[in-house]
């Protein structure tokens, strides 16, 4: 091939040095990849990442709200299957995550974590629900139910394991989430959204917004159609207090920022699942 067009010739082999296609990533809202309403982006590792605005938060909450009925209405067994399928697809993208700079051990932990939570979907009710003894001819049952739309501020580190560890426990019980991804390491989250978009997960169950959580966080925390808030990713105590105050407007359930650094590789227990469950008490007469 003649090199007449000003291409860079890479080392005399005749084949011009290839210029990487710089990718411009978009947001993940309602199962689709829209551009940020604001049109803004910021550079990360040689690619452009969308900078979400408050209107993107609003759109994501709308999508998450619309998905609650369908997702919480599926059987727990079916949710488990869908999430397990996601884990299979994460396995298939293992090398891609490693290529983004995520340590291989962390990728493996993240996939295992996802499988672990997927397995809980049809077991959490037995563990967390109860048949209560009462003085009367009634069954009295405590049945856990999803809270609804959960706003999540994801931890910056570890980028993939941390994200999976906050998203999976919220959705496995039937909640839908709007996740504000930490601005320092968004690429694993974007790859995760590409996995989710091609999986069987209904659109809107997980919505991932890249950008600056310090800018969009208060809009999510104050949104009256969000039922719960997970502040695990908040490191600045002042910002955490501000978000908690905004969340008080409609009495959101708030999972506060961790007091001490979290060991993400350790057994997480069921606390993150039960944090976003409400308990419904049901009476039923015996012998009817």
């Amino acid at each position: 091939m003649s090199d007449g067009g000003g291409m860079v010739d890479g080392g005399g082999g005749g084949r011009p040095e290839r210029v990487d296609v710089r990718k411009t990533y978009k947001l993940f809202i309602g199962g689709k990849f829209p551009r940020s309403e604001s049109g803004r982006s910021y550079p990360v590792q040689n690619s452009n990442v969308a900078l979400a605005s408050r209107k993107d938060v609003r759109d994501a909450v709308l999508a998450a709200r619309a998905a609650v009925k369908g997702w919480s209405g599926t059987t727990a067994y079916n949710r488990g299957q869908v999430l397990y399928r996601v884990a299979e697809m994460l396995e298939g993208r293992r090398d891609q995550f490693v290529g983004l700079g995520v340590p291989a051990a962390e990728v493996d932990d993240a996939i295992d974590r996802w499988v672990w939570y997927a397995g809980w979907s049809d077991k959490i009710t037995q563990v967390y629900g109860n048949a209560n003894p009462v003085a009367g001819p009634y069954f009295n049952l405590s049945a856990p139910e999803p809270t609804g739309v959960v706003g999540v501020l994801a931890p910056a580190e570890p980028a993939l394991l941390g994200l999976v560890s906050v998203v999976a426990p919220a959705i496995v019980t039937g909640n839908t989430v709007v996740v504000l991804v930490a601005d320092t390491s968004p690429l694993p989250a974007i790859t995760l959204s590409e996995v989710l978009a091609t999986s069987d997960l209904p659109g809107g169950v997980v919505n991932l917004l890249t950008g600056r959580p310090t800018e969009t966080g208060s809009w999510l925390a104050g949104h009256m159609d969000v039922n719960a808030l997970d502040l695990t990713g908040v490191t600045d105590p002042g910002f955490g207090t501000e978000l908690e105050r905004a969340a008080a407007g409609n009495l959101k359930r708030v999972l506060r920022p961790p007091a001490e650094p979290v060991d993400w590789a350790a057994d997480p227990g069921i606390g993150r699942m039960t944090a976003f469950l409400e308990t419904k008490t049901v009476w039923h007469p015996k012998g009817v």
Partner: peptide, 9 residues
């Protein structure tokens, strides 16, 4: 109010 509202209200 300065915060997004929801249909529940």
């Amino acid at each position: 109010t300065g915060v997004y509202s929801g249909p529940d209200y």
